[in-house]
Computed example of a mutant assay.
Amino acid sequence: MTEQTKATILVVDDTPDNIAILSGILKHEYKIKAALTGKLALQIAQGQDKPDLILLDVMMPEMDGYQVCQALKSNPATAHIPIIFVTAKTETQDEQHGFELGAVDYITKPVSPAIVLARVHSQLSLYNQSRHLEALVKERTRELNESRIEIIRRLGRAAEYKDNETGTHVIRMSWFARFLAEAMGQPEEWCELLYNAAPMHDIGKIGIPDRVLLKPGKLDAEEWAIMQKHTQYGVDIIGDHPSPILQLAREVALTHHEKWNGKGYPSGLVGEDIPLSGRIVAIADVFDALTSERPYKKAWSEEQAIALLQEEAGQHFDPQLVPLFIECLPRVREIQQKYKDQID
């Protein structure tokens, strides 16, 4: 075992001789750190190179071992470190108190070298197993999250194919929405969440009859009323799941057709009563729809699309967001180039 791969043991005792004894027992198999006070022990444990296990004396001045243990277990950065009490206190209630505070073992003084080595080895093995399992759980959680996000994206694309789209619209507009959220200075976690939720904005179109959804001409009043129902259908499809990404996808599906002036649908919300996600996606969705070619229409130029956004700022769109979107155009163009439609 190299010095780099050896586990680190922090020995805490106010008596130098006791530290010397424990260090002598352990130094051939482990890297040793030492602290003569509880305060110093906390500083070492909270440092960058944290110990893998702590041997902690109970009876120390100023800050005793119980107080040190309690402080370590109350701090998320050190709560996971196993603590073995090493003490001359032999009463059952003393051991019980130590375990109640979070210690994993209890060694009495004077110590037996064989017992110290066995207990330390045993607890480190358990700790390593726990860390390995935790890593596996994190990896599996990451895989599940990625799978869930991919399913959401594919469902969003499925809704587009029904609408005679190419499937790349949801990719582009999701990026546009992310860029705009970032330009606003929103937290990175929320920007990522919006990027992954935005593809579901029109999932409710799955519930619209083809005679309405695919009608080449202008919709009559009855057909337009049916088309507007796709926002509520989207809410129903996504459901009321506690997952943050599905909660945001639900919000986007319901509100991305609201207008700043209150003339949108389904609720006629006005201004900032419209959730930010809906206001952002409204701009991203309309801009990409305008600048994309379809079998039934030619693509607008960027200049024409931007002119419409500016004209509708304060009417359809949040007037604070339109200028920010214009600032994002260099990044928008890169996405348009990368995810071009293939029109037959």
Results as ranks from 00 to 15, higher is better:
residue 18 N to K: 10
residue 18 N to F: 04
residue 20 A to Q: 15
residue 31 K to S: 12
residue 35 A to N: 06
residue 36 L to Q: 05
residue 49 D to H: 12
residue 60 M to E: 06
residue 65 G to C: 10
residue 65 G to S: 05
residue 65 G to F: 09
residue 68 V to W: 10
residue 70 Q to C: 13
residue 80 H to F: 11
residue 84 I to A: 04
residue 90 T to A: 14
residue 102 G to P: 02
residue 102 G to H: 08
residue 103 A to Y: 05
residue 108 T to A: 09
residue 108 T to M: 12
residue 109 K to P: 02
residue 109 K to Y: 03
residue 113 P to W: 13
residue 113 P to V: 09
residue 113 P to E: 04
residue 115 I to N: 05
residue 118 A to Q: 12
residue 123 Q to M: 07
residue 126 L to F: 09
residue 128 N to T: 07
residue 132 H to K: 15
residue 133 L to F: 09
residue 137 V to Q: 09
residue 140 R to F: 07
residue 141 T to N: 11
residue 142 R to D: 12
residue 144 L to H: 04
residue 148 R to W: 12
residue 149 I to E: 10
residue 161 Y to S: 04
residue 165 E to D: 12
residue 174 S to E: 08
residue 175 W to H: 13
residue 178 R to L: 07
residue 181 A to D: 00
residue 181 A to K: 06
residue 185 G to E: 03
residue 186 Q to N: 12
residue 191 C to Q: 02
residue 192 E to A: 14
residue 193 L to H: 05
residue 197 A to S: 09
residue 197 A to E: 06
residue 202 D to N: 11
residue 204 G to V: 10
residue 205 K to Q: 11
residue 210 D to H: 15
residue 210 D to Y: 14
residue 217 G to P: 06
residue 219 L to G: 03
residue 232 Q to S: 13
residue 234 G to S: 02
residue 235 V to R: 06
residue 242 P to F: 01
residue 257 H to L: 11
residue 257 H to Y: 09
residue 258 E to C: 03
residue 264 G to I: 12
residue 265 Y to T: 15
residue 278 G to L: 02
residue 279 R to H: 10
residue 280 I to D: 03
residue 282 A to I: 02
residue 285 D to N: 01
residue 287 F to G: 10
residue 288 D to T: 06
residue 291 T to W: 12
residue 296 Y to L: 05
residue 296 Y to Q: 05
residue 304 Q to S: 10
residue 305 A to H: 05
residue 314 G to R: 03
residue 314 G to Y: 09
residue 318 D to Q: 01
residue 328 C to K: 02
residue 329 L to K: 02
residue 338 K to I: 01
residue 339 Y to N: 08
residue 339 Y to L: 14
residue 342 Q to W: 14
